Simulated scan of single mutants.
Amino acid sequence: MNDRRAWAAVASFPPHPRNVRHARRITRTALAAWGATDLVDSAEMVVSELVTNAMRYGSGPVDLTLALTESGLRVSVTDEGTALPTTREAGEEALGGRGLQIVRLLAESWDVVVRLTGKTVTCVLALDPKRAEDAATAAPAEAGRAVTLSREAGA
């Protein structure tokens, strides 16, 4: 990678089901801008599962933070709910219940940080060192170090 420390994108939105789609689009757009397209499929899946869980089991607005470093992509999803995520054993016919299993399969690591006003679930998707170097040379230098995307609660 070049001299940048990390690329970051931040989005905040109300807990409405349509915003899962927006979170995936933000992820895809950010990774394309950063030249890390090899992470798009896994990152979109992880973001989709974590944002869906935050909306289903959490409360309040949902914050999504993506940070691309030399070693990988850190995905963090924050909500104001007190319910902690738990992995479940989904039956063959079950339509849901596999979200954290998917995260565990795709991510190098994941954890939960409980805060005074909610929780943050974070996972890391590993970036191949050679691809990190390629992404650094592909990303335009004038693009800046951070991108902040937000949507007001009433929108």
Rank of each mutant, 00 (worst) to 15 (best):
R4I: 08
L68A: 04
T137F: 07
S59F: 08
L68N: 03
L68K: 05
N2F: 06
V10A: 04
A36Y: 01
K130H: 11
W7C: 01
L64P: 00
D3N: 12
L116C: 08
S59H: 10
G58P: 07
T117S: 12
E70N: 12
V147W: 07
R18G: 07
A32H: 05
G97H: 13
T122M: 13
V77W: 09
G60S: 06
G91Q: 14
R4D: 06
C123F: 06
L116R: 15
S71P: 02
L39A: 01
Q101A: 15
P85I: 14
P140T: 07
T117Y: 09
V124H: 05
A136E: 12
P140H: 11
M55Y: 03
T52F: 11
R74P: 00
T69M: 00
R151C: 08
T120Q: 09
V113T: 14
V77P: 06
W34I: 00
A132L: 10
P15A: 15
A107Y: 02
G118A: 12
D38N: 09
E108K: 11
E142K: 03
S59A: 13
G118L: 09
R88M: 14
T137K: 15
R88H: 15
R28I: 02
G35K: 02
T87P: 10
M1G: 13
G58M: 08
E80M: 10
R131I: 09
R104W: 14
R104C: 10
M1Q: 05
T27W: 00
T82Q: 13
L127D: 05
P140V: 10
G144Q: 02
V114L: 15
R25S: 10
D79A: 04
R98K: 12
G144D: 00
L149C: 04
M55Q: 14
D79R: 04
K130L: 14
M55S: 02
R25K: 14
T52K: 11
E80R: 15
V75W: 01
A30V: 00
A90G: 07
V51I: 06
W7A: 03
R28G: 06
A32Q: 09
L127N: 07
V113G: 08
R18C: 11
H16G: 06
I26T: 07
R74D: 07
S48P: 02
G144N: 02
A9K: 00
G96R: 14
S48Y: 07
L116G: 09
V113F: 02
I26V: 15
L116I: 15
R145H: 04
W110A: 11
G96D: 14
L84Y: 00
E80P: 03
D63V: 10
A11E: 04
N53K: 09
